[in-house]
Design a protein around this nucleic acid. Structure first.
Lengths: 246, 246
DNA sequence: ATTACCAAAAATATCGATAATTTTGTAAAC
DNA sequence: GTTTACAAAATTATCGATATTTTTGGTAAT
C-alpha cells in the first residue's frame, strides 16, 4: 500500500520535473490537443514550413496534426490574435502574409517599446536583475550562432539564449503587459528572420554588440544602452529588409 | 452601363460608412455565430455583467447566447488573447480577474505607448490628420459625458467619440501594430472604469483637458501634448485606483 | 477533528456528422 | 471572345453526442 503510493508520488514528481525542463512542444504534447496543435502550428509558421498566405484547410490540418476539428479551430483562433494567422469570416484561415511595410512597422514598434522598457528597467532593476543580466549575457556568449559546419544553419540553443538575454534586459521594467507585447514582437521578428532565409550574414560582431548593451545597462546608463539597443535592432532590421526585397 | 457602375460604387460607399458608424455588435451580428458570441461576451465582460473571476461554463453560455459549443469555445479563445478571459488547460475558462496592481501596470503602459505614439503622430501627421483631430475633438465636445438626469449613467455616444478622439490623435504614428496595442489597452481601461462603478466623478473639467491636448497637437508641440496626455490619463487613473481600493 | 480515499456528478475537451456557404467548372447567351 | 448562370464539388461553420478529466460529497481510517 505504502509502496504503491510512493511509486505514484515519485512518478508524479518525475512528470513535473520533465515539464519544467522539457521544451514547449513536449510540454504542450502532454497537455490538451488544442495546446499541442497550437504549439505545432505556431512552430511551423514561425519556421516558414507553412508559407505566408497559404490556405489552412481544416481537413488537411486535421490529418497532418492528427486531431479533430475543434482543437484545430481553437488553435487557429489563438494564432489569429498572435498575428500569425488571418481569419476571414466564412472563408476560413490562412497563414498571415508578410510584407516589407509590415516589417518596417514591426521594427520601429519594437524599438519604441524596447527602448522604453529598457530605460525603465535600468531605473528600477535591483541587484538580482543585474545578476540575471550578467548571467544571460554570459550564457549567450558561450554558444555559436550557427551550427558547426559551413552552412548557416541556425543554432536552436543560440536562439533560445538570445531571446532570454533580450527579455532579461527589460524584465525589470515593471509592466508584465509591456513584456508580453515585446515578446509578441520578438516572435514576429524571428518569423521574418526565418523567412528572409538569408544564407550570408553580415560580418559585424553581434557578440560585441550584446556585450556593449550589457555593460551600459549594468552601468545604469539608460541613454547609451537605449541607443545601442536601437542601433542593434535597426542594423539587423535593415539587413533583413534588404534580403526580403532583394 | 456607366450609371450601373456608379450606383454600385455608391452603395459600397454607403455600406462602408455604415460599418464605420454602426456599433460593433450590429456589424458582428450579421457575421458568423463565433463573431456574434465574441462580440456579446466581450461586451458583457467589459460592462461588468460578467464579473471578474466568474466561471464561464460552456453549457451555461450555450444557453444564454443560444449557440453551439464550438462558437462559444472559439470566442473564448479569442477573448483569452485580448486578456478578457483566462483559460486553464482542462479546467475551462473564467472571466479575467482584476487587481489594483494590474491596473497600475495598465495605466503606466498606456502612458508609455500613447506618449510615444502621440509624439510620432505630431511629427508625421499631415493636414488631413490635423483636420481629423479637429473634427473628432469637436464631435466629442458636442455630447455630454453622462445621460441627462441626476444619475451618472454613461452616455454611449460620449464613450464612442472619446475613444475616437484619442485614436485619431495617435493615428498618424506610422505603426498599425502600435495602434492595435493602444486599442487593446484602451478597452482594458474602459473595463476597469466600468468595474470601478464610481457614482461620483471628480469635478475637473475633462472637456478643457481634451481641448488643451488638441491645441498642443495642432501646434505641433510634442513635449506639451505628451505631458498633457499623460497627465490626463494619470489623473483619471489615480481616481479610478482610489475607487477600486476604497 | 483531520486526512485519505473512492464513487458519483459535473464539466471540459474532443470527435464525427450535418448544414450552410463559397468556390469551381461548364455550358449557354450575348 | 467574354460574360452570365447554374449545378457540382469543396470547404467552412456549426451542432449534438461521447470520452476524458476534474470536482464534489460522503465514508472510513488515523
Amino acid at each position: 500500500m505504502e509502496e504503491e503510493k510512493t511509486k505514484i508520488e515519485s512518478a508524479e514528481r518525475d512528470r513535473q520535473e520533465n515539464a519544467l525542463t522539457g521544451n514547449d512542444e513536449e510540454v504542450a504534447g502532454q497537455g490538451s490537443m488544442t495546446s499541442k496543435a497550437y504549439a505545432r502550428l505556431r512552430s511551423d509558421i514561425m519556421s516558414g514550413v507553412l508559407t505566408p498566405g497559404r490556405k489552412l484547410k481544416i481537413e488537411e490540418l486535421r490529418q497532418i496534426y492528427d486531431v479533430g476539428t475543434s482543437p484545430i479551430r481553437e488553435a487557429l483562433s489563438l494564432l489569429t490574435s498572435d498575428h500569425f494567422v488571418e481569419r476571414i469570416d466564412q472563408r476560413g484561415f490562412r497563414v498571415a502574409k508578410i510584407s516589407s511595410q509590415e516589417f518596417d512597422e514591426l521594427l520601429v514598434t519594437r524599438c519604441w517599446l524596447e527602448e522604453r522598457a529598457l530605460r525603465e528597467s535600468i531605473i528600477k532593476g535591483d541587484s538580482s536583475w543585474e545578476e540575471q543580466v550578467v548571467l544571460s549575457a554570459y550564457r549567450l556568449s558561450r554558444v555559436p550562432r550557427f551550427e558547426p559546419g559551413d552552412g548557416f544553419i541556425a543554432n536552436p540553443e543560440w536562439e533560445q539564449r538570445h531571446k532570454h538575454f533580450h527579455t532579461t534586459l527589460i524584465s525589470a521594467c515593471g509592466s508584465s503587459i509591456m513584456l508580453k507585447f515585446c515578446d509578441q514582437l520578438y516572435d514576429q521578428n524571428v518569423r521574418y528572420r526565418q523567412l528572409s532565409g538569408s544564407k550570408a550574414y553580415p560580418t559585424r560582431d553581434i557578440s560585441a554588440e550584446h556585450g556593449a548593451i550589457c555593460d551600459a545597462a549594468l552601468a545604469r546608463d539608460g541613454d547609451l544602452a537605449a541607443e545601442l539597443l536601437v542601433a542593434h535592432y535597426s542594423m539587423t532590421g535593415k539587413f533583413l529588409q534588404y534580403q526580403l526585397q532583394g
